[in-house]
Design a protein around this nucleic acid. Sequence first.
DNA 1: TCTTTACAGTTCTAAAATTGAACTGTCAAA
DNA 2: TTTGACAGTTCAATTTTAGAACTGTAAAGA
Lengths: 170, 170
Amino acid sequence: MKWKELEEEPCSMARTIGVIGDRWTLLILRECFLRTRRFEGFQSALGITRHLLAERLKKLVRLGILRRIPYQEAPKRHEYILTQKGLDLYPIMMALVHWGDTHMVDERGRPLLHQHRTCGKDFDPVIVCSECGEPLLAKEVHTHPGPGAQSPLTVAAPDKPKAKARRSAA
Amino acid sequence: MKWKELEEEPCSMARTIGVIGDRWTLLILRECFLRTRRFEGFQSALGITRHLLAERLKKLVRLGILRRIPYQEAPKRHEYILTQKGLDLYPIMMALVHWGDTHMVDERGRPLLHQHRTCGKDFDPVIVCSECGEPLLAKEVHTHPGPGAQSPLTVAAPDKPKAKARRSAA
DNA sequence: TCTTTACAGTTCTAAAATTGAACTGTCAAA
DNA sequence: TTTGACAGTTCAATTTTAGAACTGTAAAGA
């Protein structure tokens, strides 16, 4: 499986992983949500190599997650800011942070707290059902094929040597 | 930055990324939530190389996300099942799926639908504030240092060559 | 009995991605 | 005139990953 293929798989999670499923991309996005906008800002905050940073930013722009906006002429310079598509990644970021807060903190406690301006309190993100509003538990969720199915997701992997089949069919 | 270091950074998101922030690990976890439990199951469903699969499973077990349970003697064989720590990754998975459903579907629509047994309806996951129950918007959230702070997260990256500092201090 | 198959890995080489460091080019400030 | 900030690009060396074959146990089939 090449990583380009991931973006075209009939599985929403695989497609998302194809877009943001690598370590540097995720860390770059963390910085974006913390209001970092410029090349040097990302580079010095993360310690990522300039080579990779340039590459990843280009990819995020190409995918419509970041927009490249000029902030200065002569020499031309740009800022990278989240599009709506990028902002929509927020629940993913919060879910990642929350799991870390729950399972990876040391004795000192959480490095960062989140305050909800709307109600004024420090909070945890909770994932709920859009229909009934109850918190979601994995055990209470049943998945079934949708209109765009034909998904590897719906297969319990019978016994066919998938990866092979394509090649040996000749 | 080495990837081992990530798990020790004072940032919950970085730590989480250190654990599950690579493509294959995320896909393996997807399979776990779809009830895949055995080596061959993962391998044929994903097309991952056996080498990497063995490595990743070992890591997930070491980190307490999967438990390795014998299901047969002679020859000894094991199943990999999610621990509670692993099950707690569910919101991350749902958030990934939902973003893909929103931004990466083709004209045919979603490959997979999710039904909430509790209320019987197909749903979307919604992330809400634990305190007031309102859906969370990035703009309404303010982050501030917590007890375990000292975080790179709270720094807007002044101009120090971070990665260097540690080494050259000698 | 001999061979094949399922299963869960391990080992090896080639190919791809990442790191680390230096280099390019523009402009402003010292 | 030199230095520094900024946003990259280039390239060799290292690390990861891919791809394929191999190991070993036991059940099933010819």
